[in-house]
């Protein structure tokens, strides 16, 4: 089993390597000269040429890639000629801010989605079920930026409950409570669509599991319904719920970019937007890479969780190894 876990973790290395090559090539394919866009249209040919030399753009692609990889392995994401700062310094704190937003919205959509789905499934056909599934359908059909604007208008402008933008209040000492206060609206805006998706999937999975012979069998022993629902129904519905939640992380990271723009959240989305518009290739590369790595790690976690949750899967792994 340990060997499987180690193998699975090692197997992410070629994937990550592939991601770096892909990202590198993608940037090479984008038309336009980065040196020219940094210096502006009025720059002389000599100035552009010397900056190209400085940035290493005249080297062959293989040399450029290996030197970039060499930096990466040392934890150095490169240097942004547009911002005149090392990218690690600029991007990493922003990436962490984005992760705060993503993780918060993931928590919201998983917890609320599962609870809503569970209640709907257990009260299948009731008004509660129809209402929450109706709301879920509407929620899943709304674009993130629009939800963000609506939430901002309703809760910040009309009711004044939450701050309009930013991560901390500039005039206060900050701290956890302040962060949380700023986090709630963007996190909800980001989470809505995924929440609806998870709620609907949870509902249908739970309804399926409720029909399983073993659930009915345990009911025939007169065990209390709530106990069976938690111990057997929810437990056996977890794998698909975890799978879909893992897939939602990608959507959440994408949706977070919109929320960041609307709520002025200092995350990686804003930075990438600026980088793309100014042809800041090293920053774009680094940003895509960070997001890709996160995605690979999330998938790894989902896979390992699924194995951990399924005795049958563990056995088939053992017999394959033996």
């Amino acid at each position: 089993m340990t060997r499987f876990f180690i193998n699975r973790i090692l197997s992410t290395i070629p994937v990550l390597l592939g991601v770096t090559i892909f990202v590198f090539l993608l940037i090479q394919l984008i038309p336009g000269d980065p040196a020219k866009s940094i210096l502006g249209g009025d720059a002389t040919a000599e100035a552009v040429e010397s900056l190209r030399e400085e940035m290493g753009l005249n080297e062959s692609m293989i040399v450029q890639y290996t030197s970039w990889m060499g930096q990466l392995l040392q934890g150095d994401l490169g240097y942004s000629h547009t911002l005149h700062t090392p990218i690690t310094e600029e991007l990493l704190p922003r990436f962490l801010n984005s992760m705060i937003l993503t993780v918060a919205s993931l928590l919201i959509c998983v917890v609320l989605g599962v609870v809503l789905g569970l209640i709907s499934a257990l009260r299948k056909g009731s008004i509660l079920d129809k209402a929450s599934m109706g709301v879920a359908l509407i929620g899943a059909s709304m674009p993130v930026f629009w939800i963000a604007l609506m939430l901002m208008w309703l809760f910040s402008l009309e009711m004044g409950l939450f701050p309009v933008s930013g991560m901390y209040n500039m005039r206060s000492p900050g701290g956890w409570m302040d962060l949380l206060h700023h986090l709630i609206l963007p996190a909800f805006a980001t989470a809505t669509v995924s929440l609806a998706v998870i709620a609907r999937l949870t509902r249908s999975t739970i309804i399926d599991t409720l029909q399983k012979d073993y659930v009915k069998y345990f009911q025939s022993f007169g065990l209390s319904k709530s106990k069976i629902n938690i111990v057997h129904v929810l437990r056996n519905s977890l794998p698909p719920i975890i799978n879909i939640s893992g897939m939602q992380v990608g959507y959440l990271m994408g949706g977070a970019l919109f929320s960041e723009v609307v709520f002025n959240w200092p995350g990686i989305g804003q930075a990438l937007y600026v980088a793309v518009t100014s042809n800041d290739y090293p920053t774009i590369q680094a940003g895509i890479l960070l997001i890709a790595i996160t995605f690979v790690i999330v998938n790894l976690i989902v896979d390992l969780l699924n194995v951990w949750l399924s005795p049958k899967l563990q056995d088939s792994i053992k017999s394959n190894a033996g």
Partner: peptide, 8 residues
């Protein structure tokens, strides 16, 4: 009996 025991 195949399906009446909880696989987990």
């Amino acid at each position: 009996a195949m399906t009446s025991l909880d696989p987990s």
